[in-house]
């Protein structure tokens, strides 16, 4: 049985899809059979971030409506044999996701994979609740600013009351906090919430801190999950995050602003 992980946030634009792609790739690279499912029906992006947009034949909604089998719809990643992508449909809307049918597809995926990563759409409406309903783990992606923190808090409330685990009275969903677009210099200036601030408000275990990085945008545009860019700080931070998710105890990096030496300041202005 696979563990189902939902990547969620409430707010849009915080880095859910980037995180879903990076986490799925990271898990697959360590030999875990991983499927990543795009729940953002109507506004699909995951295929672009994963660089498989030109190989989409069938999609999630086709599988739900039994117009295609799971094997027909799953796209195997060219870089990693253990990774498969189930793209969302761009021409339908989120009402196409019926709860029982989503459950059936996830159960079928569970049989063949170790991890199923669900990339949730923004908001707290039907699409987002479907993405989290069957989850075992939730990674709440939050930016260090007040509106994102509040939306994450709201999402956590929904996770604890409207999931299958909550409705069946099972052990609750394991919740993790992932702080993205973190800029230590702006924290020092007091423009941005610090890790401690966010953790105090949300009272959650911190899975990782991804620094604000130019590498994320260029990786997205190139269709390469940023975790594959091992030179970049964001790629390394995602790599650490995957290790932590798998139970390794690794200290958090990139929390302090880089101290510029005298010489580099002199030459770079």
């Amino acid at each position: 049985m696979a563990r189902i992980i939902v990547i969620t946030s409430g707010k849009g634009g915080v880095g859910k899809t980037t995180t879903a792609a990076a986490l799925a790739m990271g898990l697959a690279q360590r030999g875990k059979r991983t499927a990543v499912v795009d729940f953002d029906v109507g506004l699909r992006n995951l295929d672009l971030i994963m660089g498989c947009e030109r190989r989409v034949v069938y999609d999630f909604v086709n599988v739900i409506k039994q117009e295609a089998t799971l094997n027909q719809a799953l796209i195997r990643d060219k870089r990693c044999d253990h990774l498969y992508i189930l793209p969302a449909s761009q021409t339908r809307d989120k009402d196409a996701l019926a709860k029982e049918e989503v459950g059936r597809v996830l159960e079928e995926l569970s049989d063949g994979f170790d991890f199923v990563v669900c990339d949730s759409p923004a908001g707290i409406e039907h699409g987002a609740t479907m993405a989290m309903y069957y989850a075992d783990d939730a990674i709440v992606v939050t930016n260090p600013e007040v509106s994102s923190v509040r939306d994450s808090d709201r999402m956590l409330g929904i996770l604890s009351s409207k999931s299958r685990r909550a409705e069946n009275g099972q052990e609750p969903i394991r919740e993790h906090l992932l702080l993205t677009r973190y800029d230590p210099r702006r924290v020092d200036n007091g423009d941005m919430l610090s890790v401690e601030d966010v953790q105090e408000i949300l009272s959650l275990t911190l899975l990782g801190v991804i620094p604000e990085s130019k590498a994320v945008l260029s990786a997205s545009n190139a269709g390469i999950p940023v975790i594959l860019d091992r030179e970049s700080d964001a790629g390394q931070a995602y790599f650490d995050t995957v290790s932590r998710y798998l139970g390794e105890d690794i200290p958090h990096r990139f929390l302090e602003a880089e101290r510029k030496g005298f010489l580099s300041r002199l030459f770079k202005g």
């Binding site: 509040r150 808090d153 709201r154 956590l156 409330g157 604890s160 009351s161 009272s203």
Partner: peptide
Amino acid sequence: ARPVRSGQ
């Protein structure tokens, strides 16, 4: 006995 989240 658990945190009360925004919206609850």
